[in-house]
Design a protein around this nucleic acid. Structure first.
Length: 130
DNA sequence: ATTCTCACA
DNA sequence: TGTGAGTA
């Protein structure tokens, strides 16, 4: 089982996530309604969140505090997703050396840090740091 | 005891 | 976004 799989394991119920993120259940469900997160469901229809879900929620909270609306946050996630796809393809196609990849990742992570989206990138690219 | 959906004096 | 109702 790799890190990606591990981070996507549905582990905690909404009560735990509320404490971890300091968000209300209402807010967490509201963000799901707007497709910013997609937690798994149990047999009894209870939401089960993964570490990635929690990271995303923390990112949402941070962006909300910075005055970004849900549409804007969704765009940030989409751009982030695109950047991740490009990096994954570079690695998959072996078009750059390992050293170049690490230099590229470090540069991108630093840039992302200024935009407050470090955790998301680190989460989705964690498997490249083995 | 918890979480879910729905609705709004 | 909060909150209460009625469930599962």
């Amino acid at each position: 089982m790799n890190d990606d799989t591990r981070r996507n394991q549905p582990l905690f119920p909404i009560s735990i996530v509320m404490k971890l993120t300091e968000l209300s259940a209402r807010q967490i469900r509201y963000y799901e309604e707007h497709e910013l997160i997609n937690p798994a469901r149990t047999d009894g229809n209870r939401r089960m969140f993964s570490f990635n879900d929690v990271d995303k929620l923390l990112e949402i909270k941070s962006l909300i505090e910075q005055g970004v609306n849900l549409a804007g946050i969704k765009r940030v996630f989409e751009l982030n997703q695109q950047a991740v796809s490009l990096l994954k393809n570079e690695v998959k196609n072996e078009q750059v050396s390992d050293a170049a990849i690490h230099r590229r990742l470090k540069r991108d992570l630093m840039h992302a840090g200024r935009l407050g989206k470090t955790s998301l990138i680190q989460g989705e690219l964690s498997r490249f740091f083995h």
